[in-house]
Amino acid sequence: MTLRLAFMGTPDFSVSVLAELIAAGHEIVAVYSQPPRKAGRGMAEQPSPVHRFAAEHGIAVRTPVSLKSEEEQKAFADLDLDVAVVVAYGLLLPKPVLEAPRLGCLNLHASLLPRWRGAAPIQRAIMAGDAETGVMVMQMEAGLDTGPVLLAEHVAIASDTTAGSLHDRLSEIGALLMVRALAALERGQLQATPQPEEGVTYAKKIEKEEARIDWTRDAAALDCHIRGLTPFPGAFFEVMRDGKPVRIKVLRERPVAGSGAPGEVLSLEGGITIACGSAALHIAELQRAGKGPMKAGDFLRGFPLAVGERLV
């Protein structure tokens, strides 16, 4: 038995879920995604990753700017859905949309709710130093990620986990979890567990100013912060050259022993060791603005730093 459904998603994270639903044989009558955005050097309008994937598989794609109008809500209701699957769509679903599918709307969220409700759960979990996170399928309701949990998978956050690696892992696990959830939904065997009232945190959108490295912070905290921003938007510091700041992203590092003024270059042996507010960071891979990623040794050959130099 298959379900008649609509898929609602936008970024790369959502694509693997859509792919698994197609492979499972569900009848996907429409895909909803954010409207094309201008991007690239020519600033041409580019469809979202979900939009492109759906179009390649011959699925009708709808890209409304909003779902608040009666016209859009009627068009959604006319799809006569069993269920809607929502994965990082980016638009709020009004009550008429939530209530239109016969079995409601299921959302895949990349955290262990109620921790990290909101826009950036993957990054915030790493930045906060959490030991684990996960993915959850929940029944959607009007609140922001407040619905009851239907299925969950826990995932450990290792000392070298980055937002990029965790994103890919949770996307794969979440895709399989959603397929399981729909199979159980068909059988009437999904059990809804209300989220606890305690432990609620919000994963606010990553702001540009957060990407600058504050060397006065503890090295362990900076390690989490940097990994949570890797690869995008990328945590950075600046070095003054010819009276101008040169921006440099840190791609791979680890906390080490060391002391000095925050931002001071302590050593250039086997990498670049920088003093923090407490302890130090040993940087193994960097990326200068306009250049590709480089190991620290290669970077220093083209952009020398000096022991005792201060980074900002």
Rank of each mutant, 00 (worst) to 15 (best):
Leu106His: 10
Leu106Trp: 15
Leu106Phe: 15
Asn107Pro: 11
Asn107Gln: 12
Asn107His: 09
Leu108Asp: 08
Leu108Glu: 11
Leu108Val: 14
His109Phe: 09
His109Arg: 08
His109Asp: 10
His109Asn: 13
His109Met: 07
Ala110Gln: 02
Ala110Phe: 07
Ala110Tyr: 04
Ser111Asn: 07
Ser111Val: 12
Leu112His: 07
Leu112Phe: 03
Leu112Ser: 06
Pro114Tyr: 14
Pro114Phe: 09
Pro114His: 11
Arg115Cys: 04
Arg115Tyr: 02
Arg115Gln: 14
Arg115Asp: 01
Arg117Ser: 08
Gly118Leu: 11
Gly118Asp: 09
Gly118Lys: 01
Gly118Cys: 13
Ala119Asn: 00
Ala119Val: 08
Ala119Glu: 02
Ala119Ser: 05
Ala120Arg: 01
Ala120Val: 00
Ala120Asp: 06
Ala120Trp: 00
Ala120Ile: 03
Pro121Trp: 00
Pro121Arg: 02
Gln123Met: 10
Gln123Glu: 14
Gln123Arg: 12
Arg124Gly: 00
Arg124Gln: 13
Arg124Tyr: 04
Arg124Glu: 04
Arg124Asn: 13
Ala125Arg: 05
Ala125Cys: 06
Ala125Lys: 07
Ile126Pro: 02
Met127Asn: 02
Met127Thr: 01
Met127Lys: 01
Met127Ala: 06
Met127Ile: 07
Ala128Arg: 00
Ala128Gly: 04
Ala128Ser: 13
Ala128Thr: 05
Gly129Ser: 11
Gly129Leu: 07
Asp130Trp: 00
Ala131Asn: 12
Ala131Ser: 12
Glu132Thr: 10
Glu132Phe: 09
Gly134Met: 05
Gly134Pro: 04
Gly134Phe: 04
Gly134Asp: 02
Val135Gln: 10
Val135Ala: 10
Met136Cys: 15
Met136Pro: 00
Met136Thr: 15
Met136Asn: 12
Met136Val: 15
Val137Glu: 03
Val137Lys: 06
Val137Ser: 06
Val137Asp: 01
Val137His: 01
Gln139Gly: 06
Gln139Phe: 09
Met140Lys: 03
Met140His: 04
Glu141Ser: 12
Glu141Trp: 03
Glu141Ala: 13
Glu141Ile: 14
Glu141Tyr: 05
Glu141Lys: 08
Ala142Ile: 12
Ala142Gln: 14
Gly143Asp: 12
Gly143Arg: 09
Leu144Tyr: 01
Leu144Trp: 01
Leu144Lys: 00
Leu144Asn: 01
Asp145Leu: 03
Thr146Ile: 10
Thr146Asn: 07
Gly147Met: 03
Gly147His: 06
Gly147Cys: 04
Gly147Arg: 00
Pro148Phe: 02
Val149Arg: 06
Leu150Gly: 00
Leu150Glu: 01
Leu150His: 01
Leu150Cys: 08
Leu150Val: 14
Leu151His: 09
Ala152Leu: 13
Ala152Cys: 12
Ala152Arg: 15
Ala152Asn: 08
Ala152Lys: 14
Ala152Met: 13
Glu153Arg: 15
His154Gly: 06
His154Asn: 11
Val155Cys: 07
Val155Trp: 03
Ala156Arg: 15
Ala156Asp: 15
Ile157Ala: 10
Ile157Trp: 06
Ile157Tyr: 04
Ala158Asp: 15
Ser159Ile: 06
Asp160Ala: 13
Asp160Phe: 10
